[in-house]
Amino acid sequence: MITIIKPGLLTSIQDLGRYGFQKYGVIASGVMDQIAHRVANLLVGNKESESTIEMTLIGPTIQFHENTLIAITGGDLSPAINGKAIGTWKPIFVKKGSVLSFGKCQAGCRAYLAAAGGFSVPFIMGSKSTYLRAKIGGNEGRALKKHDAIHIGNPSSIAVKMIHFYQPQLSSDFVSGRWAVDASLIPIYQKRKSIRVLKGRHYHLFTKQSQQKLYEEGFEVSSQSDRMGYRLTGPALALEKPEEMISEAVAFGTIQVPPGGDPIILLADRQTTGGYPKIAQIASVDLPFLAQAKPGDTLHFTEITHDEAQRLILEKEKVLQELKVGIKHKFA
């Protein structure tokens, strides 16, 4: 079991999302940075789809009430156990009673905590993800708060082997794994980002000038940004002529442009459908970079082809598959 001593800014239980119910208007939810989430789970022997705790800018303070195998990935929020800094993107075996806390946000803005066995909250519509607005999923349908107690599930057979490996070394507060994840999987969360995008379905309806500005100028993530979407400020984008759009599905990373001209990038808590023109779509492989952008960051967009975006997905999945096999072999 873990207990929450301080909740942090926005800390919630998420998994890869709630799928199959968007046709009923139930949003997908799920983690913002899927790569960080999946790797955190793999590092502790979980399935990639298991729940993690997503934290934002200011991390929580959490006490462990049993020896627990954990991993922290994603943005660098300066994690420490009993005040001693710990590494990220590697397994860490934590001694019962220890306290995990976070400090300054050094890079990115969202970090993920996985525990071997996952967090024991009920599946609602097949998912443990917290859907704040509908008050369902996660822990009682809300962000974590002080005094919350969350149980941890049973570790997998790989996790049990990992725990046996680390157990004898556990003399002080924690043991840190001596190996880390392939560098290609650890995104470098720079301040000035170039995010790869595909042309949207309505790109051709925008003025030539707007089409150029999308790629040539920077867009700032405004303070009115959350898990639902990032509102961007920068050059206004305009349609050639007013168009009557018929609402249709949107996706994680759709860039839509309301009449005001400031684009919105739709994210994990996006609505299922939308009626604004879609100028572009973030390439899936760059969604984790985007998820780590915070208000005030400037985004630059570069166009890639649809084929290239697909190839990048397949390559990334291959690397993840190798990591999975690698962990299995290490502890087999």
Binding site: Y19, G20, F21, Q22, K23, I246, S247, E248, A249, A251, T272, T273, D307, Q310, R311, I313, L314, E317
Partner: peptide, 27 residues
Amino acid sequence: EYIPAFTTITIFYEPVMLARLCNHQVL
């Protein structure tokens, strides 16, 4: 999953599974 709307049905697919199903012949 799929999302039906007024004039469209959007189908969300598994890219890795599709690549495997067609033996990586096409994207």
